[in-house]
Each structure stands twice: as C-alpha cells, then as structure tokens.
C-alpha cells in the first residue's frame, strides 16, 4: 500500500491538486474546538485565482466597511452598565 489518498500519507498538509473546485477545501476545514496548535498558513489548493474569487473582489471594497465598527457606542442607554453609571454619577454630583 502506498496510501496517502486520504491525507494520512507522509505529508498531511500537502495538497497536490490541480482541482479548481474550491468547495472541497471548505469541507476539509470544519472548525475544530479550539484554535489549532500553530499559526501556520495553509497551502492554497490552487496556485492562482481570478480576482472575483478573492475575499474582497475588486470593486466591492466599499461594501466591506460595515465589517469594522467604531470602538465606542453612543446608543446604549438601555444597557445595565450605562444606567448604573448614571446613577452613581448622580450620587457624586449630589454630594456637593
């Protein structure tokens, strides 16, 4: 047996494939319970790809700004912590 078809061969990380079907890649990468041991970047199954297959295809950069938010929050009046803060501040102010 020369094995290795199922990835248990000498180099499990090696993906020798000229397949352009990227759905198989997704299937292999089911999230495990915790982040894996090291932060080694994985080999891509294909060498190069069309710009449209990128995480942010050209021309759609504007559509990604909502993925990052400002670090403060103005509209949280209903939040417990904010309420508590207001009560406490009112107390200090009342002291003088």
């Amino acid at each position: 047996m020369s094995a290795a078809a199922d990835g248990s061969g000498p180099t499990t990380k090696a993906t020798v494939s000229d397949s352009t079907d990227s759905s198989t890649l997704k299937d292999q990468q089911k999230p495990a319970a915790a982040l894996e041991e090291d932060d080694e970047f994985e080999d891509f199954p294909v060498d190069d790809w069309a710009p449209e297959d990128s995480e942010v295809p050209p021309g759609s950069e504007g559509g990604t700004t909502h993925l990052w938010e400002e670090s403060w929050d103005d509209d949280d009046t209903s939040e417990d912590f904010s309420k508590q803060l207001k009560e406490e501040l009112a107390k200090v102010k009342g002291q003088k």
Binding site: S22, P31, L35, D39, V46, D53, S54, E55, V56
Partner: peptide, 18 residues
Amino acid sequence: ALRMCHRSATRNVELILA
C-alpha cells in the same frame, strides 16, 4: 492579504483576522 485571500480558504482568513 485579507482582501486577496481565496474566499474559500477559511482557515487562512481566520489566521489573518486573528
């Protein structure tokens, strides 16, 4: 790296974001 990454390479996008 994030912008250009192949969008099915979930693990790599995850590493970039970390």
